[in-house]
């Protein structure tokens, strides 16, 4: 389960993993026998296309981004070097502060909910007897529909006047006045999180399900014979054994959620009063809407330290798994 199964995050994921493998290969190359050396050379050659792609489409734009973040470029005009002034400006920008706060809340809540619900669904699917294939396939639907399309559908469902959600709640007697799903600051971020959870949960469920199926049923049986109830079996057997998979999925998801753009851009455009702006949407607003490319690059790079830490942790964890207990 070290290989990314998520096409959306594959670029982000492939990058550190492949680089690491290549570096690892080079170190090994120095102190190995001739046969081994030939093998590693072959591996390196095989990796070369991927490395070239990464250099062209990830490393180069990234380096450009860092440079742009230190220029005062505006659209159509080459900028002057201004050091970290863009970052200082952002630090004192009230909208940026709000954006940072939103992004952390959004990522934390969405990831927690996706994990909890995903785990629940995975457990249910794992214990299911009939309709397995049908249920698994239909569960993946939210995840395979293009985000823009499904988000537009959500936008309609949240429409202040024509919301079908309101209509149903009203007719079931739960509400008396219509709920403005994207109106209030709390309501808006909650709704955006809800859509993210709806979309991302299947990825959790299907991956965790794969993990669950690798757990040997004998262990469960043994635990049951020893008198463990279902809850204890989950906490003492399933959860620890599933931990490597869980960690990897959570970290992938954090990277994806932290850098989210489409959902917010379509649902709220960052409003009302910037209560749903995320790093990516605010960076877009500065860089594209106001043409301040340097400042926009700086705003999007502000994500980098956080994502970098997540990736480091992920690499460390995977490596630990490889060296010791083995992955899922």
């Amino acid at each position: 389960m070290n290989r990314p199964t998520d096409p959306v995050t594959s670029t982000a994921l492939a990058s550190p993993a492949v680089t690491r493998a290549a570096l690892f290969g080079l170190t090994r190359l120095r102190r190995s026998t001739r046969t081994e050396r030939r093998e590693w050379l072959l591996a390196f050659v095989l990796l070369l296309p991927a490395l070239t792609m990464l250099a062209l489409f990830v490393a180069y734009p990234f380096a450009r981004g860092i440079r742009l973040g230190m220029l005062d470029s505006v659209v159509g005009r080459e900028g002057q070097f201004i050091g970290i002034q863009n970052y200082i400006k952002l630090w004192y920008d009230s909208i940026f502060q709000r954006t940072a706060q939103n992004t952390f809340i959004y990522t934390a809540c969405a990831t927690f909910l996706k994990l909890s619900l995903g785990m629940l669904v995975a457990l249910m699917l794992n214990n299911l007897i009939g309709f397995k294939r049908l249920l698994r396939a239909s569960m993946l639907l939210p995840w395979i529909v293009p985000t823009v399309l499904s988000t537009l559908a959500w936008k309609w469902m949240f429409d202040p006047t024509f919301s079908i959600v309101n209509w149903i709640l009203y007719h079931l007697g739960f509400i008396q006045v219509r709920v403005d799903w994207l109106g209030g600051p709390v309501a808006a971020i909650t709704s955006v999180i809800l859509v993210n959870v709806w979309r991302g949960m299947p990825f959790f469920a299907i991956t965790l399900l794969a993990g669950l199926q690798t757990i040997n049923p004998d262990i469960h049986e043994a635990a049951a014979i020893d008198g463990a109830n279902a809850w204890q079996r989950f906490w003492r057997v399933t959860w620890p054994l599933l931990m490597p998979v869980t960690m990897v999925v959570v970290l992938f998801s954090v990277i994806q959620t932290f850098a989210d753009f489409q959902l917010v851009y379509i649902l709220t455009g960052g409003g009302p009063a910037n209560s749903t702006h995320l790093f990516a949407t605010y960076a877009y607003q500065i860089g594209i809407a106001t043409g301040k490319l340097g400042e926009g690059a700086a705003a999007s790079l502000a994500m980098f330290p956080v994502l970098f830490l997540v990736v480091l942790f992920q690499l460390w964890y995977i490596r630990r798994g490889e060296g010791g207990k083995g992955g899922a």
Binding site: D159, T161, W181, L182, G183, A188, T268
Partner: peptide, 21 residues
């Protein structure tokens, strides 16, 4: 004012007006 205006986009009022709300 209609208190759902915080989440409206440029098309919301067209639809709501035509729908008679």
């Amino acid at each position: 004012l209609d208190e759902s205006g915080l989440s409206w986009d440029d098309a919301s009022n067209n639809r709501a007006f035509l729908a008679g709300s």
